[in-house]
Design a protein around this nucleic acid. Structure first.
Lengths: 148, 148
DNA sequence: GTATTTAAGGACAAAATTATCCTTAAATAT
DNA sequence: ATATTTAAGGATAATTTTGTCCTTAAATAC
């Protein structure tokens, strides 16, 4: 569905939301290990998400790292897709037709329509915070390692 | 959602299903023009779909070209994804986690589950034939050109 | 048979994506 | 001030995806 970059962006942001706060920031090394992603590449991605502090916040130096302010935690998950420039996936025609629409529908359009709407709704209604909160019980994970 | 290659594969196969038969085969030039795809690249893709005549049939020489036999028209759309090696997209975790499952769900798993099921159902239940048939009325299209 | 038409197949090129590494800048601690 | 820690940023490399072009093979037409 999404590119690796966007998958890493989603996982990293959720992990940061869960594990950190303005008081307890979190470093790139821990993040990359936790979400099982290539560290340097993930750093680049977080750099993008941190641009203008849109999705993620960061500070440099000792005890520095990444974190989310309250406002950022309340962002819909879709805003991560937008920041990654991969938002159009949710709107796109399954067959890749530029003109596919209600006026000029492709053969999949009618049936795919409701699935698309649900996808959009999911990514708009769920906030970063909510996903992080869901993990609190320890029954929901964001790692590729086998849970004990 | 899908790679360009798979988008072209879907569009080309549907177009062939609609426009051709064992009696009236259809050439790569017409196909590529009709579905608005790069001709040589599309040829390569059809080559793959024609391998072992799995999804598409073809013959060379004058009046040769591509076509579908009845058996092929009845294949589910998903078989095109499978032939393109992109079938896993339907099953994959949205966050790209290898271990995401009912036992070890990611934070999106529960909500994405039903969307995934609908996606799979759509691609399994719809046959190539059905998509081609839907276009018969001239109210459903597979082109990027503006309809008059 | 020879020429023509059309897909098959191989080699290669361009572009995008994924990934690494090194230097720079900012913040803190001493 | 100096050293240390950590993200920011730039350069570059590897891989995958997308795309083109040319030759070969098969089928038909003559």
């Amino acid at each position: 569905m999404f590119s690796k970059a966007t998958e890493y962006a989603l996982r990293a942001t959720i992990y940061i939301a869960k594990k950190s706060s303005a008081e307890k920031k979190i470093g790139i090394e821990e993040i990359a290990k936790a979400i099982d992603s290539p560290q340097s590449f993930t750093a680049k991605i977080l750099q993008a998400l941190t641009k203008e502090n849109k999705i993620v916040s960061s500070v440099r130096g000792p005890n520095g790292g990444f974190f989310l302010i309250e406002k950022q935690k309340k962002l819909p998950v879709r805003s991560i897709l937008q920041a990654m420039g991969e938002d159009e996936i949710l709107e796109k025609c399954v067959l890749g037709l530029k003109r596919c629409s209600e006026v000029q529908p492709c053969p999949m359009h009618e049936q795919y329509k409701s699935i698309k709407q649900q996808l959009i709704k999911l990514f708009v209604s769920k906030t970063i915070q909510q996903l992080a909160d869901d993990m609190k019980d320890g029954e929901i994970f964001i790692s590729n390692k086998k849970q004990p």
